[in-house]
Amino acid sequence: MKLSKAQYDEIALFITTLRPTRQCMRQLKDRFPGQSQSTLLSIFSQEYQKHVKRTHWKHHAPDTIEIYYKRYIQDIKAHPTAPVLLNLSNKVDFSPALVARIILERSLQDQDGVTSTKQTLNSMMRDPSLIPDPVLANQINQCIFNDCCNGPLVDCIKHSIGHEHEVLLREKLLEKNLAFLDEDQLRVKGYDKTPDFILEVPVAIEGHVVHWIESKASFGDESSHRMYLQDQFWSYWNRFGPGLVIYWYGFIEELDCQRDRGILLKDDFPSDIVTLHGYMALEEEQAGEGKSQKSQEAL
């Protein structure tokens, strides 16, 4: 689904009024009923990640961490069954999963014999049953399950969705009988940075030659597309020639401005692919029609 810059800006502005909980998606869908749920979720996730990056520093200041931890200890003593960490994340306007990680790391500092290494924290966030304090484990579970943008559950979902769309793209290529090499095959050949698929025989899409295809199970906004261009797409172009990027959840239509330079954007697998064999058959057909017309004119 392609959106104009104005449409995207309207959605992004509304997102600034929402919290990163699963309930927010209902509000977003009610406000923009014409947009798909997956597109809205992708936009929300990306916009909230920008917010997290902008405000990350102030939530991780030592004094702030102590304030959060003392508030958690006080509130959990007063209301042991309440969603204390979830409420805290809403009050301070920060990701529930990231607030949970802050409190977990601070809590481990008070535990004898427990070293709060990054590996330990990651393991406990993935499996809260490993946390020595069962009350804190329950609080962290609540944050993980209610955060739609961050945390180990979201990471697993994003990974699965990305893989699912790569499989979908592979199936589409096979349906079209297109010969290709995938990332694993390309790594065996010694390539370190590659698109998802390289076509062994290039095709034409809307009059543009395509040598490779990249799958992105996300919405293409300005900042993410700019980053992908710099870190991936131009590198692919330099090595393999012009290519196609599929943003499965849509993109800002004004971003599709690099076609003449060799980067084509689509929001679905194209139905109008012209293969070399098809092009040659078309040429032969047109040549045959030309000869027939000349014969008729001679008569």
Rank of each mutant, 00 (worst) to 15 (best):
W237S: 04
S38P: 00
T117C: 03
K29E: 14
L173M: 02
L169V: 00
A12L: 06
Q185A: 15
K77A: 10
I157Y: 03
E289V: 12
H60G: 02
R239W: 07
F269D: 04
D268R: 15
S215P: 07
N177A: 09
I102P: 01
P83T: 01
H225V: 09
E297H: 12
E183M: 04
D93C: 08
G278I: 10
V188N: 11
H211D: 09
N122V: 12
K291Y: 13
E206L: 04
M124D: 06
H277S: 15
E10N: 13
L255N: 08
N122Q: 14
H277F: 15
T120V: 10
E47D: 03
C156S: 09
F180H: 09
T117P: 13
I43S: 10
P20Q: 05
F14M: 07
S123G: 08
I65E: 06
T16V: 14
N238H: 14
L41M: 05
T120H: 01
S223D: 09
L85I: 12
Q296H: 14
V201P: 00
S42M: 07
E183L: 04
Q7E: 12
N122L: 14
I213S: 11
P152G: 09
W212T: 06
L88K: 10
C257I: 09
A82M: 04
Q46V: 05
L88E: 04
V92P: 04
L130K: 10
R261D: 12
A61E: 15
R170G: 11
V154N: 13
W248Y: 02
E105V: 08
Q286P: 01
